[in-house]
Amino acid sequence: MGVLADGVVQAFQLLIHGDPKVIQIALLSLVVSGMATLLSLCAGIPVGSALALARFPGRQVLVSLVNTGMGAPPVVVGLVVTIFLWRSGPLGVLHLLYTPSAMITAQFIIAFPVVAGFTMAAVQQLDPKLRLQIQALGASRFQMVWLLLREARLPLLAAVMAGFGAVISEVGASMMVGGNISGQTRVLTTSIVAEASRGDFALAIALSVILLALVYLVNLALTLIQQRGRTR
């Protein structure tokens, strides 16, 4: 049990001294997962809205695919992305394997169905009369979707949190496509795995504390935004 206390103490020491390696690892975690979340919002909100509002053949299949994707095992995503990015793979010439870009790609694939699924649920749970009313007021198609998303902004922020939470805490895909290379692709989760397998449990705990603090701060910011909208 002493190792837990040691780890917490070490976490504070690393943060107070501003250890450049740890700062870089934490920053890269934030950047990679933030970018992946941003991209998945760009793609997931339109796709989720379309699935919620449009009626077309094959919709049920797509919805079930999105729902399955919400639980896609990161390690499988990592494996498939790795094979695509291999030198012998179809995208090998891009030289993306073992780079932060590869990690963003893999995390995007993990976060996209989460965001799309949450968006779909958020828009679908709106009162159907609202849609009728907006149409009756002569809104264009774009105005209607925009207004519906506005009405659904609280659950949509939950989509942001869920998407970000899924990727910042993910380790399997990042390890596989990133390679946990020091100074290049080492993020908090992969370095926790590596330090634990080297037997440096105190450092692993310290990095875990930093990761938890980071996730908490991001979610705190998002929650404040979400709940401010609520109380107004």
């Binding site: 890269l28 902004r153 935004i225």
Partner: peptide, 29 residues
């Protein structure tokens, strides 16, 4: 409306991350 402030802030936060990314990748690669 100010209710939009939330959305705007989220976008701003993620944009800031994008900028960080650019800065970070230019120093890391």
């Amino acid at each position: 409306h100010i209710g939009f402030l939330g959305t705007t802030l989220v976008v701003a936060f993620l944009m800031a991350l994008t900028l960080l990314m650019v800065g970070c990748s230019s120093s890391a690669t």
